[in-house]
Nucleic acid binder design. Structure first.
Length: 385
RNA sequence: GGGUAGGUUGAGCAGGUGGUGAGCUCCGCUGACUGUAGAUCAGCCGUCUUCGACUGUGGGGGUUCGAUUCCCUCCCUGCCCA
């Protein structure tokens, strides 16, 4: 068996105008049903959660970050301690991001050249060098099920010349990443760039798809683009991948509404910090909206955040208690809120998969859209469904 | 009872020794967050007809063109002494 085996088992197009599909991705540590959302555990931990909590929330694969684990505790140490799975006690699949995103997120701490990126550590200011070869070396030492090619994302709103330059470099780095990769038990995904420009996107899609990657990442989105721009971009990328037997992974997307629209346009995999981060900041996602649990009206609300939700918060605690924990800055608040938002997000993806398997996706689309939590503008205050 | 230090916007403070006190930190309120330098960040936080205006330095009175500042008096709090 190769490091990644993907098969589409139900195609939404059979029942209506959609590119959504249900599939199964076999990896070294297990099978991942798609469409799927990957919670992010940057530093070998999904913030605030025990691995058992992550699994209970329904996660079948998580993401960890090469750059962060290289800096601390060091990929060599992780390798000596038995690899990432054993180190963090997570026995399901893991995907490591290449560190490419830090080229953007640490933009004032790095310099990009053709060979690679020189970073100043955000931890202690020390200087570090990341090249495609080095990223792959670190990812092989970490030992995730899936490694990702080292790329150079740029903000979607960047000037065209900047996007073109980064995209061309990403292509060269993709080839170097592949050449550097040697672990047969580890899959390898490549990353499309191209910003919001249809021509560059198409060119990047064709190029990355021409290489022997196990999966195709759509990068450089989930940034400062509008939903319409993102969807237009997907409508450029996905048709060019029609018939391609590999999973499509939109990096960085996280709100349920955004996930649904991307699935509808043919994306299989996602990751995002969003559900966990907003949870830590007191926002609970519920069908059709969200609750900002710190709002004063919840202080006397005895109801759970969401009825029939099996998460650590809703199964036991009231909105009033959660509101109290956030005000009191009790650490339990983070665990309960993160458990809830991940449970909500992963359940939402499961509903999408169920509709695809049942052949009712396009018929259910409106209902799914109504259920999707939106980041703003549609807060539900009296719901308890 | 005597002495002493104080009383500033919910709390804690800064400042101000005759020339326009709305400054800070908490608390509180609201919003943001999308391949995690994020248990973070932003705005608001006396009143109002809110790009501005008004009120406000324990209460009352006095001096003065003008008082948070000087004087008188009362109230309250901490500490020390009886």
């Amino acid at each position: 068996m190769s490091a990644a085996e993907f098969s589409v088992l139900a195609d939404g197009a059979a029942t209506g105008p959609t590119r959504a599909r249900y599939g199964r991705l076999g990896l070294a540590h297990g099978v991942v049903e798609t469409p799927q959302f990957m919670p992010v555990g940057t530093q070998a931990a999904v913030k605030a959660l025990h691995p058992a909590d992550v699994a209970a929330a329904g996660a079948s694969i998580i993401l960890a970050n090469t750059y962060h684990l290289y800096l601390r505790p060091g990929h060599g140490r992780v390798e000596r301690l038995g690899g990432l799975h054993r180190f963090m006690a997570w026995d399901r699949p893991i995907l490591t991001d290449s560190g490419g995103f830090q080229v953007v997120s640490l933009s004032d701490l790095r310099v990009v050249d053709e060979d690679g990126v020189t970073f100043r550590s955000h931890l202690d200011g020390s200087v570090h060098r990341f090249t495609p070869e080095h990223s792959i070396e670190v990812q092989e030492a970490l030992g995730a099920d899936v490694a990702v090619a080292f790329d150079q994302p740029v903000a979607p709103s960047s000037p065209l010349a900047v996007v073109a330059d980064a995209t061309a470099r990403t292509h060269r780095w993709a080839e170097r990443s592949l050449r550097a990769h040697s672990r047969a038990d580890q899959a390898m995904f490549g990353v499309i760039q191209g910003g919001l420009d249809p021509g560059l996107r198409a060119e990047s899609t064709r190029f990355i798809a021409s290489l022997p990657f196990d999966g195709i990442n759509i990068g450089g989105l989930a940034g400062d683009e509008t939903a319409a721009e993102r969807e237009d971009t997907l409508d450029v990328v996905v048709p060019l991948l029609a018939g391609d037997p590999r999973p499509r992974y939109l990096m960085g997307l996280g709100s349920p509404a955004d996930l649904l629209e991307a699935v509808h346009r043919g994306v299989d995999l996602f990751d995002s910090v969003l559900p966990a981060r907003v949870a830590r900041n007191g926002q609970f996602w519920v069908p059709g909206g969200r609750l900002n649990i710190r709002n004063s009206r919840f202080q006397d609300d005895p109801r759970p955040v969401q009825d029939d939700c099996p998460c650590l918060a809703c199964s036991t605690f009231s909105r009033a208690y959660l509101a109290h924990l956030f005000r009191a800055r009790e650490l339990l608040a983070f665990r309960l809120a993160t458990s809830h938002n991940l449970t909500f997000t992963l359940d939402f993806m499961a509903r999408i998969r169920a509709a695809l398997k049942a052949g009712t996706f396009t018929a259910d689309l409106d209902a799914l859209r109504a259920r999707a939590s939106r980041m703003s503008g549609s807060e539900v205050t009296e719901q308890s469904a």
